[in-house]
Design a protein around this nucleic acid. Structure first.
Length: 429
RNA sequence: GGGAGUGUACCAGAGUGGCCAAAUGGGGCAGACUGUAACUCUGCUGGGAAACCUUCGGUGGUUCGAAUCCAUCCGCUCCCA
C-alpha cells in the first residue's frame, strides 16, 4: 500500500502541510476531502491534478470525499483571482455540477470497499440556513482581522499595490469553505483537507473552524501550483483550456497537448500525472534520457487511455501518425476512405459541397463561415502570404488560388495545414 | 451625502483637436533554424482587393475635422461623513 505523504514528496506534489499529518495518516485510515466548484461544464486537466491526489489518497487506504461546491460555486472563490468574478446562474451551476460528478466517477472508486469515495454537495449545508443562523453560527467564528490577513484577500484590498477591491460576497467565501470543513468533520469525521497551494488560506480557515467550534484537530495539505517551465499557467493550449470532456477537447487534441508540451516540463508532468510507480517512472526517465519525445508519447498514451478510452487513444495515435507524416498529395490519395473518415472525425469540419461548384478562392474558403480555419479574409490572406498554409500537403504560395472539386481527395476531403501543428480536414460530404 | 480620480485594441499602457486604426511592452499567430520542443532572429496581430468602413465606457453636442473640447448618463477606485 502507498505511503501517501512519501508518494507526494517524491512526486513533487507536496507544497505545504500542517505538522502532525504524517503521524495521523500512518496511524490508520483517515478521511480527507477536496472541494470542486462547478464553474464550468467539465473538469479541466488542472482539476485532474486534484483527482490524482484523491486517487492516491484512496490507494493509500484512506477515504476520499469529493465535495462539490453547489453552495460555494454560487459565491465565487476569490483565491488566485485579481478581479471580482461574474456570478453564474443557478441553472448553469447545477448543470455544470451534474456533468462534473459524472466525470469524477471515472477516476475514483465510489462503489466498493470500506474506503470508497463519498460525494457530498455543500449546498446541503446551507440550503436550510437563514441569514441570522449564518451570522451567529458561521460568521462569528472568525474575526474580520483574521480573514483580512489571508493572501487572497490582502491582494485585492491593498489598493496601492493594484488591488481592485472585493465584494462582501467574495470576502465571505472563506467562511463557507471553513464551515464546509467543519460540517464534514462532524458528519464524516473528515480531518484532512487538500487542495492547490492557492487554497492554503481557505483550508486553514477550516481548521480554525474545527478548533474553535468543536474543539477538534484537523489538517491541511496543499500541492504546488502546477506551472509551465516559463512560469505561465498550466493547462491551456492555443485553443483554450484542456477539458476532460471529449466534446469540449477531442481526444486527438488532448493527445496532442501532451505531445506538444515543452521538454523542460516533462519530468514534472510525468510525476504529476502518471499512475506509474516511482520505479517505473525512474526507469523510463533513465531509458529515454536523450529522447524526450518518446517520454511525451508514453505519457500522452497513458493519459489518453485513462481519461478517454483505449479506442480514443488508438484513433488519436493513428490520426497523428498519418497527419504528421511527410509526403505529398499522392500519399493522401493512398489513405483508405474508411481511414479518412476516422481522421475527419477527429479534425474534420463539414462544409457544403455547393461552394465548390464554380470554384472558390482559397482565402474565401478558409475564412468561410463554418470553416473556422481563419476568422477573416485578411487573416487568411496574411497567413498564405506568410507561407503558413498548405493544401493537400503542398504549400499554397498564391493567395488568389482557385480551389475546385479537382482538389478533393476521394472526391470528398481537403487537407489543410496552418503552420506545423494545426491540421484540419475539410469534409465536403 | 460631500470631495478627488478614472474608463483607450486580448492585457498593460501612451496619446489631450487634423500627421490616429491609434506609440510602446506583454501575450497570441506565422516564417527561418529544429524534433509537432526550447532558444534566437524576422514578419503579422479591427474589417475590406481597394476606395473606404467600424473602433478609444454610453448618448447627445461644438467643429470643416473629435480618442482628444462641452453636456449628460453609466461603471470602477480612493478620501471624508
Amino acid at each position: 500500500m502507498l505511503n501517501f505523504i512519501e508518494e507526494l514528496k517524491w512526486r513533487g506534489m507536496l507544497h505545504q502541510s500542517m505538522p502532525g499529518v504524517e503521524e495521523v495518516l500512518s496511524a490508520g485510515k483517515c478521511v480527507g476531502y477536496i472541494g470542486f466548484d462547478p464553474t464550468a461544464p467539465s473538469l479541466t486537466i488542472g482539476n485532474y491534478v486534484q483527482l490524482m491526489l484523491l486517487s492516491m489518497f484512496q490507494r493509500a487506504g484512506h477515504q476520499p470525499i469529493v465535495l462539490m461546491g453547489g453552495a460555494t460555486g454560487r459565491i465565487g472563490d476569490p483565491s488566485g483571482k485579481d478581479k471580482e468574478r461574474e456570478l453564474k446562474s443557478y441553472e448553469e451551476l447545477d448543470a455544470n455540477l451534474a456533468f462534473q460528478v459524472e466525470q469524477m466517477k471515472k477516476f475514483l472508486n465510489f462503489e466498493t470497499g470500506d474506503n470508497r469515495a463519498l460525494l457530498v454537495n455543500n449546498y446541503d449545508f446551507y440550503k436550510d440556513m437563514n441569514v441570522l443562523d449564518f451570522l451567529r453560527n458561521v460568521g462569528k467564528t472568525l474575526t474580520v482581522n483574521y480573514m483580512q490577513s489571508k493572501d487572497s484577500v490582502k491582494k485585492r484590498i491593498n489598493v496601492e499595490e493594484g488591488g481592485e477591491g472585493m465584494s462582501f460576497t467574495e470576502f465571505s467565501y472563506q467562511l463557507l469553505q471553513g464551515y464546509d470543513f467543519q460540517c464534514l468533520y462532524d458528519r464524516y469525521n473528515c480531518i484532512i483537507q487538500m487542495g492547490g497551494s492557492d487554497q492554503w488560506g481557505n483550508i486553514t480557515s477550516g481548521t480554525e473552524f474545527i478548533r474553535r467550534n468543536v474543539g477538534g484537530k484537523a489538517y491541511a495539505i496543499t500541492t504546488p501550483l502546477l506551472t509551465k517551465y516559463d512560469g505561465t499557467k498550466f493547462g491551456k493550449s492555443e485553443q483554450g483550456n484542456i477539458w476532460l470532456d471529449p466534446k469540449m477537447t477531442s481526444p486527438y487534441r488532448f493527445y496532442q497537448f501532451w505531445i506538444n508540451s515543452a521538454d523542460a516540463d516533462l519530468p514534472k508532468y510525468f510525476r504529476y500525472f502518471s499512475m506509474k510507480s516511482r520505479e517505473e517512472i525512474e526507469a523510463l526517465e533513465a531509458e529515454y534520457a536523450g529522447n524526450p519525445n518518446q517520454l511525451k508519447k508514453i505519457l500522452a498514451e497513458e493519459l489518453t487511455r485513462r481519461i478517454h478510452s483505449d479506442e480514443d487513444f488508438e484513433s488519436a495515435f493513428e490520426v497523428t501518425s498519418i497527419v504528421f507524416a511527410k509526403g505529398d498529395r499522392s500519399m493522401l490519395e493512398k489513405i483508405r476512405p474508411a481511414q479518412f473518415e476516422e481522421i475527419a472525425e477527429s479534425i474534420g469540419i463539414r462544409l457544403s459541397r455547393q461552394i465548390l461548384s464554380e470554384g472558390v478562392g482559397i482565402v474565401q474558403l478558409l475564412a468561410a463561415e463554418g470553416a473556422q480555419v481563419f476568422s477573416s479574409n485578411s487573416e487568411a490572406r496574411k497567413a498564405i502570404i506568410n507561407n503558413a498554409v498548405s493544401l493537400n500537403k503542398s504549400k499554397v504560395n498564391n493567395h488568389e488560388l482557385m480551389v475546385t472539386a479537382a482538389d478533393l481527395i476521394h472526391d470528398r476531403y481537403m487537407f489543410i495545414e496552418n503552420g506545423k501543428t494545426k491540421k484540419i480536414v475539410l469534409d465536403f460530404s
